[in-house]
Simulated scan of single mutants.
Amino acid sequence: MKVHNLSRTNSILNHFLHEIRDENIQKDRMRFRRNIERIGEVMSYEMSKSLEFESKTFKTPLDNSVFNEIKNNLVVCSILRAGVPLHNGVLNYFDEVDSAFVSAFRKKSENLDAEEDFEIIVEYLSSPSLEGKSLVLVDPMLATGLSMLNVLKALEKLGTPRSIHIISVIGAQPGVDLIDDYLPENTHLWIGAIDDKLDEKGYIIPGLGDAGDLAYGKKL
């Protein structure tokens, strides 16, 4: 897997990352969602440089001209619910691609004394065929990596993608290492920042908290 850690390059992306992490600024839900969306736009631009293009001719009001069109048949899949703003950011740049949606959540252990124990449950899945296409899987937080692997396993029945691109805002090194062990070499990870560790509950440290709650409010 090829990792593109965009925080290593000075760009406007780092400003958006600061605003979603800052505990005072992130309390503005609309601003938080918009910043996630803008991060998705920046990452889409960076990802587009790695895609395949072919030359096409078109007509202007005065003469013929040529442009390079993306050849990849993209399917953008987001993990509900936190992935929706990031999904929208990607669609702002790849506006005619197909979309897929999948739900994945942590089911806590029945042992109330073991808050760190959980399993990832995948329930809802809506997607076109992925056979021979370029799958763009978007999820703001790449923490343990288990959600990503479970979602990819659920998508296997829909066909084998030609390539896989993962777009995440913030990840933890243990989660990045985990998916690197399982995913094909032609997989690309586009990520805003990689933090060093997880806490005992599987949250990224320093991270930003719960992206879904910050975007849409706390859930039961």
Rank of each mutant, 00 (worst) to 15 (best):
V84K: 09
T187D: 01
E156L: 02
L130S: 01
G212K: 00
L149D: 00
D117R: 06
V138F: 02
I167K: 04
E131M: 02
E69Q: 15
L155Q: 07
L220T: 13
E52P: 10
S129P: 04
K108P: 10
S50H: 14
E23D: 15
D180L: 09
L220C: 09
L142Y: 03
D22Y: 10
L13T: 07
A172V: 06
M47T: 07
R38E: 15
M30W: 10
E19N: 13
V42Y: 15
P61S: 06
V169N: 01
N35P: 08
E116I: 03
N92Q: 12
I205T: 06
L135D: 00
D22G: 09
D117K: 12
K218W: 06
M141C: 06
H18T: 13
V97C: 07
G145H: 04
H4I: 14
N186C: 00
L62E: 14
E131F: 01
I25V: 15
L183H: 01
N64W: 14
K197W: 06
L146K: 13
G83S: 08
I36S: 10
F105V: 10
Y124W: 06
L6G: 09
S7I: 08
E52V: 12
E115G: 12
F105D: 13
E41C: 10
F32C: 13
E185F: 02
L80N: 03
A100N: 09
R31D: 12
A100I: 08
P174G: 05
D28W: 09
G202M: 01
E46V: 14
D181Y: 10
L62A: 13
I20L: 12
E52M: 11
S48H: 08
E200G: 04
V122C: 01
I20W: 11
S147N: 00
I39P: 08
L6K: 08
V66E: 15
E119R: 12
K56G: 08
A193C: 05
E200L: 05
E156N: 05
T57Y: 05
N35A: 14
G175N: 04
Y182H: 05
H18W: 11
D28R: 08
M148D: 01
L17V: 03
D177T: 09
I166Y: 01
G171N: 04
E69K: 15
I170K: 01
D213G: 00
G209R: 00
R21K: 14
Y203Q: 00
Q26D: 11
I121G: 06
I194A: 02
E110T: 12
D98I: 05
V3I: 15
V122I: 04
V90A: 09
K107N: 13
D195A: 02
L155T: 08
A143F: 03
I166F: 02
F16I: 09
S129C: 03
P61E: 07
I205G: 00
S127N: 12
Q26T: 13
L178P: 04
K108S: 14
N88G: 06
